[in-house]
Amino acid sequence: MTAPAPLLSNVLVPIANEADAATTMDALLERLAAADGRLTALHVVEKAGGAPDKVSVAQREAAAEDAFAVVTARAAVAGVPVETRLGYGTDVAETIREVAAEVDASAIVFTPRGGSVLVDLVTGDVARSLVKAADRPVVVLPAPAGNDDARGGE
């Protein structure tokens, strides 16, 4: 049996918005560069499936562009190869898993976003689903405390 790929060699990073992109890149890029890995950033446009969405698709695609700009800029600075993708689906976690299978990711990596129990109940808890129904390694990185500088701190 061949050895499994190193954990951070080909990571899939779900990105929710620009702030999430900044935090996740801060937490991830140094480790990725050290592990010589590559990254695929994914934003899933949540669809209502047969009913109008709460936000128009075009608006979310535009917001995703902003988030991707942060990802690609910081990845370029860190020297990490990056690819960005948009996904569409009614179940965000399921779509993430599908894309992870498509790119044969070695791990799905994210930083936890805050959110009260009540909010999660109403809006659905993607993180929980990713962890509980994982079919490949799922890595949760702590959000770095303090400033935004990708090169500062751990």
């Binding site: 999430d20 949540e46 979310r60 805050g114």
Partner: peptide
């Protein structure tokens, strides 16, 4: 602007 948590405008 889209809300960070609720993903609504």
């Amino acid at each position: 602007d889209i809300h960070d948590q609720f993903a609504t405008p």
